[in-house]
Amino acid sequence: MKIEILGTGCAKCALLGKHADEAARSLGLDYELSYVKEIPDILARGVMSTPALVVDGVVKLQGHVPTSRNIEKLLLA
């Protein structure tokens, strides 16, 4: 599973990355987490409000940071 965290690098993006990492690890997923920080790359994924979470190319959420528990639900869906 490919998890991408979109955001220009503010505190919220780092927090989303941390929560997503916790969520994926507690589900025991085989995943790869990366950060997308350049604005053109963010826009190319169809996202304009950050931080955003993209899983295997699908935008799962944008604009807020849920708890890792709630991210687990998004990863399973």
Binding site: G7, T8, G9, C10, K12, C13, I39, I42, L43, V47, M48, S49, T50, P51, G63, H64
Partner: peptide, 15 residues
């Protein structure tokens, strides 16, 4: 409308 101030630029372009 809620948005993080650090996403002002992508938001601007999106609009």
């Amino acid at each position: 409308t809620p948005f993080c101030s650090c996403s002002a630029v992508p938001l601007f372009i999106g609009f």
